[in-house]
Amino acid sequence: MQRSEISFPYPALAGWRWPAVVFTGRRPGPKLAVIAGIHVNETSSIEAVIRLQRLIRPEDLSGEIRIIPVVNLPAVPHRSQYICPIDGKNINFSFPGRPDGTFSEQLAWALLDDWARDADCFIDLHGGDLCENVAHFTVAQQIGDEAFDRRNVEIAACFDAELIVRLAPSHLEKPGRSCTGRATRRQHAAFAEAGRIGIIEERNVEFHLNGVLRVAQLLGMITSAPPKSRAPVFVDEYLWIPAPHDGFYRYHVNPGQKVEQGQVLAVAENTYGDRLGDVRAPVSGYILWSLTHAFVMKDSFVMGLGKPAA
């Protein structure tokens, strides 16, 4: 095991150093890159990466595992949700990034082009910011190439997910998640979500940790990993559901739940208790995540909904 602090040769990243770990196996093999902490309050995923470091034994490993436990270092002292305080951007939707961009864009570029350029698989762990409750799901970016897409789904299925979201090739046309950025380079990635309200919970930590171990097993890096307990449901559209009013929201559904078109997902009230309106499911599908905080501003997103294939 080699611990270090790494830096990247891009002007916006000057002066920043990221704690990182590299495990080199006793036998040659694939390279696996694992990150967490793009959103620093998603602590179950960060805890999973910390535990992963305790589990890896070089004598049992073929190849190399690289780890950056916390990507969004500027957010740590502020407990900033979603964004990087330096440029106000969400790193999560900045990939593949730009070498001449802002801090978030240069960091996204550095992760893919410098740190993980030669990685056989890139794993990005997420889930459950301070005001969120997130289902156990993974995202597999599709590019329209049958063999590539099948492999990305196979990697996503290593996690014991309730749902697997297959993103359409149209997502490649604009900045997006790390798995989308990798797909623009025809490189494989896993993107996993699980957690709630910024706390460490065992079931969510295990989802992330065991998923990484199964990916390593799939790649032939380790010989065994914990078994899965369920078969996922596949969805092919990721819908973001906005709040219709400024209000105090009462949520009627839970992450992972199946809902029908027109079903009431949440109710908005004012602080007198008057009903302002309903959030209804635009299509039938499955709840990917929901806010947990009652106060929501109009047009901000209250839920994610996965629509199954027709």
Rank of each mutant, 00 (worst) to 15 (best):
residue 7 S to N: 06
residue 13 L to Q: 01
residue 15 G to E: 11
residue 16 W to E: 08
residue 16 W to C: 00
residue 23 F to Q: 06
residue 24 T to V: 08
residue 25 G to T: 04
residue 29 G to T: 08
residue 29 G to R: 03
residue 33 A to P: 04
residue 36 A to P: 13
residue 42 E to I: 05
residue 44 S to K: 11
residue 47 E to N: 12
residue 47 E to Q: 14
residue 48 A to S: 15
residue 55 L to E: 14
residue 57 R to A: 04
residue 58 P to T: 10
residue 63 G to Y: 13
residue 66 R to A: 14
residue 71 V to F: 11
residue 74 P to R: 11
residue 75 A to P: 06
residue 77 P to N: 06
residue 84 C to P: 03
residue 95 F to E: 00
residue 98 R to V: 00
residue 100 D to Q: 10
residue 100 D to I: 01
residue 100 D to S: 08
residue 102 T to L: 02
residue 104 S to I: 09
residue 105 E to T: 03
residue 110 A to G: 10
residue 115 W to R: 07
residue 116 A to D: 04
residue 117 R to K: 13
residue 117 R to V: 06
residue 119 A to R: 06
residue 119 A to F: 10
residue 123 I to G: 07
residue 124 D to C: 10
residue 126 H to I: 07
residue 126 H to R: 05
residue 126 H to C: 10
residue 129 D to K: 05
residue 130 L to H: 09
residue 131 C to L: 12
residue 133 N to E: 15
residue 134 V to G: 02
residue 137 F to R: 02
residue 137 F to D: 00
residue 137 F to E: 02
residue 138 T to F: 05
residue 141 Q to M: 15
residue 141 Q to I: 07
residue 143 I to D: 08
residue 144 G to V: 10
residue 146 E to P: 06
residue 150 R to M: 04
residue 156 A to Q: 01
residue 159 F to V: 02
residue 160 D to S: 01
residue 167 L to R: 12
residue 169 P to T: 09
residue 169 P to V: 13
residue 169 P to L: 08
residue 171 H to K: 12
residue 172 L to E: 12
residue 173 E to C: 03
residue 177 R to V: 12
residue 178 S to W: 01
residue 180 T to H: 13
residue 182 R to Q: 14
residue 182 R to P: 05
residue 189 A to K: 11
residue 191 F to H: 14
residue 193 E to W: 02
residue 195 G to W: 00
residue 196 R to V: 00
residue 196 R to Q: 11
residue 198 G to P: 05
residue 201 E to G: 03
residue 203 R to K: 14
residue 203 R to F: 00
residue 205 V to C: 12
residue 214 R to T: 07
residue 214 R to C: 03
residue 215 V to M: 13
residue 215 V to P: 13
residue 223 T to D: 13
residue 224 S to Y: 01
residue 228 K to P: 07
residue 231 A to R: 14
residue 233 V to C: 04
residue 235 V to N: 09
residue 237 E to G: 00
residue 242 P to Y: 01
residue 245 H to F: 15
residue 245 H to N: 14
residue 248 F to R: 03
residue 249 Y to C: 03
residue 250 R to P: 00
residue 254 N to A: 14
residue 255 P to R: 07
residue 256 G to K: 01
residue 260 E to A: 04
residue 265 L to Q: 05
residue 267 V to N: 00
residue 268 A to S: 09
residue 270 N to I: 03
residue 272 Y to M: 15
residue 273 G to C: 06
residue 275 R to F: 14
residue 284 S to P: 04
residue 285 G to M: 11
residue 287 I to H: 14
residue 288 L to I: 07
residue 290 S to N: 14
residue 295 F to G: 11
residue 295 F to W: 14
residue 298 K to F: 06
residue 298 K to M: 15
residue 299 D to T: 13
residue 307 K to L: 08
